[in-house]
């Protein structure tokens, strides 16, 4: 679930962001408490709290005193914009490199994308 190669609090923050981007966690939805989270994933409560604090700092979560933490209404928009900025560099460029390395013409790739678009199902 968590690996030992990067700080766990960052991995927690990434996991929650991912749930927000995919819509698994909706706007104004309450997230688990740090103690629930710590118990569920078997991690130190201070580590969980640090991950949550980072998300509050970034404006992804907000606190309601005495009640808990919730997903900011703008969180999804914020995160999607951030990921869109790196989409071409992190997703498309490596795909192009792979296609070139194994000899798939880019023209075929483009056609494949077009067929998906006209085939429906795409947003």
């Amino acid at each position: 679930m968590f690996d030992d190669r990067s700080p766990i609090y960052l991995q927690i923050a990434e996991q929650i962001k991912n749930d927000i981007v995919t819509g698994a966690l909706g706007a104004d939805e309450q997230v688990m408490s740090t103690n629930q989270y710590a118990a569920f994933y078997r991690i130190n409560p201070a580590t969980a709290a640090k991950g949550f604090a980072q998300l509050v700092d970034e404006g992804v979560l907000y606190k309601k005193r005495g009640i808990g933490m919730f997903v900011s209404p703008k969180a999804r928009e914020l995160l999607r914009t951030g990921r869109q900025a790196s989409f071409f560099a992190e997703v498309v460029d490596p795909m192009i490199r792979e296609a070139e390395a194994i000899g798939v013409p880019l023209k075929d790739v483009v056609e494949h994308i077009h067929s998906r678009e006209s085939g429906g199902g795409a947003r």
Binding site: N35, A38, A39, R42, I43, N44, P45
Partner: peptide
């Protein structure tokens, strides 16, 4: 051991 880790974390929290 997992039971131990869970019990310890729960009571520590």
């Amino acid at each position: 051991r997992n039971l131990f880790y869970d019990a310890l974390l729960a009571d520590y929290a």
